[in-house]
Design a binder for these strands. Structure first.
Lengths: 236, 236
DNA sequence: GGCCGGTTTTGCGCTATCGCAAACACCAGG
DNA sequence: CCTGGTGTTTGCGATAGCGCAAAACCGGCC
């Protein structure tokens, strides 16, 4: 089994307050694995047997309805945990995780969690913090879906993606993994058609530049303005 | 300070795995307080100084936008915790909590949390579980808002309220606290007008009976059917 | 270098739902 | 018993965004 370099992950929020020796012990329980682009890491409804820490790449967590519609729960960036089903008391994964880029993850068996938490209570506290933050983000998303129109929701979604996984360019910010109109629609509760229309409009205003599964925010500040615009103060 | 009876709260999920002596110690750090109907317990944005456990009554947690719109994050039922801002690493309350009925709560100062968690690690684990469950519920809500129409969302919302806080009647289930059309609108991302129209329609079909801040599900199963109906399979 | 499949764009009608406004009902208080 | 006020019902446009369908595009692969 590949040895994981402690220094690469010790600074992550998950391990705040954990000593280097403890890190060794924690990492000894993990194995690492590589998932190629577009491969599934786990499926919604499957027995939750492991939890994960993303080292490289990007992972999309999506939830599917009985009728087949999907929403994107979130995009996982390097350094973030995912698949914490058992930590929160679920026997099955509530969503599907798929690598949207070639990705490398650390994998712990669920059985290790109770032992780790007992030896390193900071892990539970850190995880609680993380999950709490995600809960708040979910509430914010609900608030947006309830009170804002599609254009504003898309603006917020892109800004968040840019902050989380944006690559600074000379002029603008590029979202650093492949993302389609459909994906954005599934993040904002709309359809790919509407997303396409809005991005086209933005492109003609010089706010963004985009193509096949690729988006560059050319005028982030202009998009912030859009995002905060009240529903009626529309354009001419 | 009023002494809290251990036996009343020891069975709650929050205290799973905590010994009776430990319970004493935990409860010694709390005080209890009574909030009359329609009084605020804490306000969104205020310094988070305490966390809460609801003993009696019902509390509404709501989030407000800069422009004044509100959504209901959740209704808190007896036995549930709320205002856990600090446990999840927030310095300020992300929502406003208001008693919708005369309510009694236990209050711990935030400063007690680190100490309690250190002495009773089960608390952190239990809280993680709770927060995780709420996170999943939030995702479900986002999924519903993204994929279902208003009527189905209202159906789901009422069914959840009935499960959480329903009082069984001879014929039907009554939601056991005052709730307005506006409240339901704020739970489902619609307007009180639309809620009113839909409830009126349901009433004429004998599915519900409702009045001023009062709702009785007369045919819960019929509402389940509505909730699960696919978007197009509409009525005649 | 041409072909294939997924992605994006765009037109067009449709409708669920909003938004406003007015009329009502009901409970609480005096 | 009357009255004020909050919550509810309902009518009637207005419209944002959906849904379908078709065409254009783009990139990688053979």
């Amino acid at each position: 089994m590949a040895k994981v370099d402690t220094s690469l992950v010790a600074h992550l929020p998950l391990f705040a307050g954990v000593t280097p020796e403890a890190m060794d012990e924690i990492l000894r329980e993990a194995r690492s694995a590589r998932y190629p682009k577009n491969s599934a890491i786990f499926e919604q409804g499957a027995d939750a047997q492991s939890f994960f820490l993303l080292l490289h790449g990007h992972v999309r967590a999506a939830k599917t309805t009985p009728t087949g519609e999907q929403i994107v729960v979130r995009y996982v960036a390097p350094g973030e945990t995912f698949g914490l089903a058992m930590a929160i008391g679920a026997a099955r994964y509530p969503a599907t995780a798929m690598a949207v880029d070639d990705s490398v993850v650390l994998i712990w068996p669920n059985s290790a969690w109770p032992r780790l938490v007992e030896r390193f209570p900071a892990l539970a506290a850190n995880t609680l913090q993380t999950v709490g933050t995600r809960l708040q983000e979910s509430h914010t998303r609900i608030l947006e879906m309830s009170t804002q129109q599609v254009e504003q929701r898309i603006a917020h979604a892109l800004l968040r993606l840019a902050k989380q996984s944006g690559k600074k360019l000379d002029h603008g910010i590029e979202i650093d993994f492949p993302i389609s109109r459909q994906d954005i629609a599934q993040m904002t509760g709309t359809t790919l058609h509407t997303v396409s229309r809005i991005l086209s409009a933005w492109e003609s205003q010089g706010l963004v530049e985009s193509g096949r599964q690729r988006i560059i925010l050319r005028d982030p500040h202009g998009i912030v303005v859009l995002a905060e615009r009240s529903p009626d103060s529309g354009a001419a």
